[in-house]
């Protein structure tokens, strides 16, 4: 561990974040978008753990933050997927370009 610089973790996390961002903004499929968001959350968690280990290893806050963030991710996935299922049931599609009820 000690011979890996902190910036390596940050770079990997930001790469993962950008890949997730690309997935979330460019997929047509609503479930694909949700998967992109989950990957982005993971990237943030890597950063949190890295900062905990390298900057405040004696405090617990970093780890608690990660556990809470995982909880939020799980809740988000549960509700998000339920919404997608509801949309699929009423409109018979998961392509979000077909779902434009609130669009001008």
């Amino acid at each position: 561990m000690p011979d890996i610089p902190l910036s390596w973790y940050l770079i990997v996390a930001s790469a993962l974040f950008c890949i997730g961002l690309f997935g979330a903004l460019s997929r047509r499929n609503a479930i694909g978008i949700l998967m992109g968001i989950e990957v982005m959350l993971n990237a943030v968690n890597i950063n949190l753990v890295a900062f905990w280990r390298y900057i405040t290893p004696q405090a617990l806050t970093g780890q608690v933050f990660v556990i809470v963030s995982i909880t939020v991710a799980a809740a988000e996935a549960a509700v998000g997927l339920a919404l997608i299922l509801a949309i699929f049931r009423s409109r018979d599609t998961v392509n979000i370009e077909d779902v434009h009820l609130m669009k001008w």
Binding site: T71, A74, A78, L81, A82
Partner: peptide, 20 residues
């Protein structure tokens, strides 16, 4: 059917609980 999803859903919520 949606029943499968409900079970997975309850499972995930209780799974998260184990983290605490």
């Amino acid at each position: 059917k949606v029943q499968y999803y409900i079970y997975a859903l309850v499972f995930v919520i209780f799974d998260v609980e184990t983290a605490f």
